[in-house]
Amino acid sequence: MPAAADAVAAVKARWPGVTDRPSLDHPAVNVPPADLLAVLGSLQSAHGFDMLTDVCGVDWSAEANPRFTVVYHLFSTTTHDYLRIAAACADATLPEMPSATALWPAADWHEREAYDMYGIRFTGHPDLRRILMWDGYPYFPLRKDFPLAGMETELPDAEVAAETKVGTIAAPMAGGPFVASAGEINLTDAEPRAKDESWTEKRPKPGT
């Protein structure tokens, strides 16, 4: 992949903060958030990476530092190369990243999704609001400290909730997740089974 390798070399020479990122397939670099827009703009205009295929957040666990990373996948419609750009958010409690919407309108919805799922604020985004969850939803569901079963929340429309007398409740864990714990010595613990069996459809949730 000469074109992508050239682009990586050029970007690294111009911005000393850019470092190689381990990757099993496409060339990948880590970019400091301060240089992100300049690097992306240069890749778009000077190196032919004209398509932004994907933007997504990654949470490296609640204890990790830096906790949130935004990963961009660029594609060139002329050389057909992919390039991965990763930028780590400096702050774990109020993660922020400059928005790439001025470079690619495609970034609009992707960044809204990353905000919706991880709470990463994209500064300069023209219309940063939730996209998959409803407006006013209080949590960021793809964060690692958000449980798979979900959390009880108010329904978005108070009138509907009052009329139908329903609310959202967390999903019972009776069906899973069936995840095996690798490297577990105690085979009973290692068995794939629902890890939280404290409550099911039949047994009520403790404390309710």
Partner: peptide, 22 residues
Amino acid sequence: VTEGPQMPAGEVYFEAENPKGA
């Protein structure tokens, strides 16, 4: 079943040309 499949650590990105797009 007990240990789960063992995968190497790392990152990959793959796109396939599906009927609706990549």
